[in-house]
Amino acid sequence: MPVAVNIQALSHSFADRKVLRNVSLTVEQGMFVGLLGANGAGKTTLFSILTRLICNSSGNVVLFGHDLQRSPADALATLGVVFQQPTLDLDLSVLQNLQYHGAIQGMSPTDVQARAQEELERLQLWDRRHERIRWLNGGHRRRVEIARALLHQPQLLLLDEATSSLDLESRIQLIGHIRSLIKTEGLTVLWTTHVAEELETDDQVILLNRGEVHAQGKLSDLITAAGASDANHLMLNLSKSGS
């Protein structure tokens, strides 16, 4: 299967603190891949490098054949991103937020309008397009962020702890929606989380621990290999070995 994300020998430090150590991993196209690790494992730093918010100290990142350092515009154009922190403009409406995002992606207003309608209808938010973000609840705001991330039809969707601050029902709905996109759109998803319950046993998982790739493979295989009873147990073992 073609490769969506190819990371080789990636390291990064903040001052004298090494947060990523020689990370190498691949994500195949059309897959749902969980990036699992305890707090402080280096997930957000890796995520920030993938979105080019920070430049890596060493190593290579290639997204759909585009080197992130050498051709950042082509690489970034393949990405849709949902950050852990809310990033919507509270004083603008749902549609205005999407229009702004489309514009900074270089989309024409006509395309933005058509795509915004498509995505918002799919998330049952089209009727609320003129409402200010300020008046929406947390679950709806996250759905707007998903719609926004998909507006320019990226090939890879990156989600950083996207379900934090959501209640159980919103969390289940969100994960279900993302999984359906893989089937319908052929999207590749890299899902960063520290909550093992969000992943299914058949999912491909990358375990990150203290800035290193601890293991990569199917979650059920990783559980068996670690002698753990379930994903939570696996995470607990990982946290203990990391502390």
Binding site: L53, V81, H101
Partner: peptide
């Protein structure tokens, strides 16, 4: 952060 992830 959203602005900075633009390909421009």
């Amino acid at each position: 952060r959203v602005l900075l992830t633009s390909p421009l």
